[in-house]
Design a protein around this nucleic acid. Structure first.
Length: 92
DNA sequence: CGGATGACGCAGT
DNA sequence: TACTGCGCCATCC
């Protein structure tokens, strides 16, 4: 059932602590593009989609997303997230 | 069942 | 370090 993979992705996204971020590859190993499709379709307010960024720290939703992250205290390095400091693997 | 699509990732240049 | 092109994999049509 396709919902299972989507649910797994969402479950991991919910584990990302405030002030930290993770990557698409982390929430959906082997199929990072799938993670994006799920978040794009998901509108659940309990899912902190803004904490999911690209592996290089760049954002998918641009300034809109950047604002939310800075508000949570996520460190930035120019236009991208400072992965060195803000990266946190799913489920701890 | 074949082909196109995408909130990606990585190696090369 | 920034830009470009190709590969991957689950879905969708």
């Amino acid at each position: 059932m396709k919902e299972a993979r989507a649910a797994a992705v969402l479950a991991r996204v919910r584990t990302i602590p405030e002030g930290y971020v993770t990557t698409y590859g982390d929430v959906s190993p082997g199929a990072p593009r799938f993670a994006g499709a799920v978040l794009s379709d998901c509108d659940d307010p309990d899912v902190p989609w803004q904490r999911v960024v690209r592996a290089d720290g760049s954002l998918a939703k641009g300034e809109r997303q950047r604002r939310l992250l800075e508000r949570e205290g996520v460190p930035f390095r120019g236009a991208r997230v400072d992965m060195r400091e803000a990266w946190a693997p799913p489920q701890g």
